[in-house]
Write a protein that binds this DNA or RNA. Structure first.
Lengths: 145, 145
DNA sequence: GCGAGTTGCTCAGTGTGCTGACTAATTTCT
DNA sequence: AGAAATTAGTCAGCACACTGAGCAACTCGC
């Protein structure tokens, strides 16, 4: 008894939102490349030759998860990892030609998918939703630091 | 090159929102019981004696994930699974006394946590955020059907 | 009442995401 | 220069979350 209405709980809604997104992603964008994998490709397309720690900051994922993603993308030949000669701890990442090609293809598809995903909202609501989520996420990240 | 700004991508933001929520959850609510586990306890507190499929509908998770969650909660003695005598396929779930106690404790804590989580927004914005997420998630679930 | 289809659950496999412990390389302090 | 602290990455372990295949139990049509 005394149960709570989960539809007023931001955590539950956040999970459902991500779930809905994943579903649409696999049907409209790619079955092979996941959304977090695309985030990695995208970050490396913008800033090549960065190490895993910097990358993890850009996509907001921790070191172990990045290591996994990088390993998977590396196995598929989408990126290359070298060792930084200046600092032997760092691995330097960059997209292969194939990785860059996959990234280009997915950019157009994700744009299309985002339109469909947000279609139930009008333009002002879409902008509001993204802004509000960003503020809550940013604030929570501040707490961590 | 031609990289995209992830902060305008709802999928990426949804993941970050959930990430932020999980972080706050483990510090403010519980380290043992996760948010999806709470969702299960909450659903059973409201409607005991349901089967896993019905439960999966209530918390918006698929059958395999529910099976995992139920097994974990069962191992911790928070719920009991019986076999439906009318229909031998169904397992009938209900909270143990301990499960109900854990649920009661977490209800008050999640309420407190939700306030902190949404604190960066004013009251109107909070209501708007929850409503907009709900609409997008609902619409995407419609597509599935 | 019996075969065919449906339904509830399980299991294997994959991917995401975290913590905490460890290794190796670099930097800092003395 | 050498010890101590910091930093990058790896690894094990756990939890969540999905698909697809399979099994057991029930229902429906004939």
């Amino acid at each position: 008894m005394a149960a709570v209405d989960l539809s007023t709980h931001p955590g539950h809604l956040a999970r459902r939102l991500q779930q809905a997104h994943t579903l649409l992603w696999t049907t409209m964008v790619s079955e092979e490349t996941t959304s977090p994998q695309f985030a990695v490709l995208n970050a490396l397309a913008e800033k090549p030759d960065i190490d895993q720690r910097t990358l993890s900051g850009h996509v907001h994922l921790d070191r172990s998860t990045i290591a996994d993603l990088v390993a998977r993308l590396g196995r598929r030949g989408l990126l290359e990892r070298g060792r930084d000669p200046q600092d032997g701890r760092r691995s330097v990442l960059k997209l292969t030609d194939e990785g860059a090609a996959v990234h280009r293809k997915l950019v157009t598809r994700t744009t299309r998918m985002n339109r469909v995903f947000l279609a139930p909202l009008d333009e002002g609501e879409q902008e509001t939703l993204l802004r509000l989520i960003g503020r809550v996420a940013d604030a929570a990240e501040e707490l961590r630091a």
